[in-house]
Design a protein around this nucleic acid. Structure first.
Lengths: 349, 349
DNA sequence: TGACTTATTTGGAACGTTCCAAATAAATAG
DNA sequence: CTATTTATTTGGAACGTTCCAAATAAGTCA
């Protein structure tokens, strides 16, 4: 009794109709008479029928699985967690369900999970690619007609849609804010130089400096792992340069926190003795002491947006690769020294 | 050319064998000759074959879908994000893939996503139930032979496996630590009283107090939302009681952070003027100022453990409901006042 | 009433796999 | 050389849906 699955045929028998009719009501077809629909529905409820999407999906060839895949690099990073939630809300309310996997920046794992998801018949994929992902890696997917949306990091050369934040503009406004506070020696700290995101943010930094008439000094660009540990490492080097900087824009918030740690270890108070601004605006940024001035990128918004884009492509059947860059805004808190005391020029927050 | 799916039959034709043989190599059967296996594999690679798990799953009745569902209440809470990662790593390395959904404490959403996952044929479910989840809600699942593992919050009455942290012992050790620091008036702050977790933690608090020969004073138990905002609210009330407490154990870290905020708003320095200890040990706990003394529960460990338990049950075919409570440990940092200065009694950290 | 619509229902035949029983090929034994 | 294992391979027949063409029921019109 607890063994056999209840199938559409069981329903058909119990309701004195054909399997086809049952199928029709399952799909909410308008062809079926209201009375029969009611009866069939009743029987379904009574017998505890559960739809077998796998079987259905087998028949209707196309990508109607209503499953989308989501692949991120690091779920424990609240940035990606928020992103996943953003995806989840739109995916869920569209009646889809999501596979979610974590690659931990491992390109092998990424390959594996994507392959696995594909075997399971995802009808679309949202991915924040692991570092050093080959643009060709998603070729087979799109060739098979499975739309792919790349988020956060773009994949130059890949013919897929992508949605990234405006890294350039964001970093530029961070620099301008610091300039407005009177800083002239501003460092760029953290991040791996082999990524597109790094390039964009660095470009923003450079533009910001040049726009302010300040020289771009390579000695002030210090890359490191994009982590807290990387941050302390970077600030250590920064402080050692001859004409010591008085402020820094950081690759991301994790680096910025590390920079604060490193400053304190040297008896310098972030905000007061050295201005630091981050990038991402993770939730901790607000709660930290000092609260971190940072460029807010609304990861949840990116998630929502990416999901919408993906669903649109899934429904459209064909995927026009489109690229959107989302706006960012500087949110001024305490770590830049502008604090409550001197709300001098509050960026465009 | 980019239209038709490559099927097992195409492979069979191209390799001059029968579909059955191809199926055999797919399953890594030892029946098939090494030479043919090689040839078939080669052809598969060449034609870009992708396994259709849906079809396979249709045939092999049982729950061999290699999909498990994961449902959490709040992914943006790093506690749950870590938990999900823990699940992910074991699930992934077992060759499974996970549906992950967020309920945001909505019981309707929970119902929906679980139903959806079931339609998709999950072979098991890990769920941190939304508040006020009915124990009977998962009855149909287990009746259908789908193992369910409840994590973090237990569901008294439901005949499912569960894995929760030792809330009672954790809170007790927190209290004992404060007692050891000389506190006598210790409050219990935050949390909704209608949950099993609340009951357990409160019981631990009570035992701790009584074990120390201190009276249990109901006026010192102040519930609130288990959030930062709830924390500031709770500390407000706590400070207003006649014989004002000098320390507090909090329902969770979020509440503890709120309590710190509330203290500062009243010109009291957490750690120095009032001792506060949290519960969970979220990542921010370490980085906060003052660093939070808290009970560490290793959410990632719970995730891993829960996943292992689930996989075991899936493989076993039958699900013995088992309950495990995982050990917790107090990690002493600064917010309790024991700080660097006085490492007096460091709990069992 | 008979012919023609319109509304509803219905048997197969797919879909891509796995499983079973049975066929074939090769090897060994008598 | 036939009988018997042993090693491989192989045709269907499932699995639970959806789709199609076609059947039936019920009106409608002369």
């Amino acid at each position: 009794m607890t063994k056999a699955r209840v199938t559409v045929i069981d329903i058909a028998k119990a309701a004195n109709v054909s399997k086809s009719t049952v199928s029709l009501v399952l799909q909410g077809s308008s062809l079926v008479n209201e009375a029969t629909r009611a009866k069939v529905s009743a029987v379904m409820r009574e017998l505890g029928y559960v739809y077998n999407r796998g079987a259905a999906n087998l028949r209707q060839a196309g990508s109607k699985s209503r499953i989308i895949g989501v692949v991120v690099n690091d779920l424990t990073n609240s940035f990606f967690a928020e992103l996943a939630v953003g995806v989840d809300v739109v995916v869920q309310s569209a009646g889809f369900v999501q596979f979610l996997s974590n690659t931990g920046e491992s390109i092998d794992r990424q390959r594996e999970v994507v392959a696995s998801m594909r075997e399971h018949g995802i009808s679309g994929l949202i991915v924040s690619p692991a570092r050093a992902t080959d643009a060709a890696d998603f070729k087979p997917l799109v060739a098979a007609g499975i739309p792919v949306v790349v988020v956060v990091r773009n994949l130059p050369g890949a013919k897929v849609s992508s949605i990234v934040s405006d890294n350039r503009a964001g970093m530029m406004s961070a620099v301008q804010h610091l300039v407005g506070l009177g800083h002239k020696r501003i460092a760029f700290l953290g991040g791996f130089p082999d990524t597109a995101v790094f390039d964009d943010r660095l470009a923003g930094y450079r533009s910001g400096m040049e726009a302010a008439g300040l020289s771009y000094d390579e000695a002030l660009v210090i890359s490191s792992a994009p982590s807290r540990a990387g941050g302390v490492e970077a600030i250590g080097k920064a402080i050692a340069v001859g004409d010591r900087p008085t402020a820094a824009v950081c690759f991301n918030d994790a680096v910025a926190f590390g920079v604060c740690d490193g400053l304190r270890a040297r008896r310098l108070e972030p905000g007061a003795d050295f201005a630091v601004v981050g990038f991402d605006d993770v939730i901790e940024a607000q709660a930290a002491v000092p609260a971190l001035t940072t460029v807010s990128v609304d990861p949840q918004g990116i998630g929502r947006r990416g999901a919408q884009m993906l669903l649109k492509q899934i429904n459209a059947g064909k995927a026009e690769a489109e690229t959107v860059t989302t706006a960012v805004r500087l949110v001024v808190r305490e770590s830049c020294g502008a604090g409550k005391a001197a709300p001098a020029r509050a960026g465009r927050a």
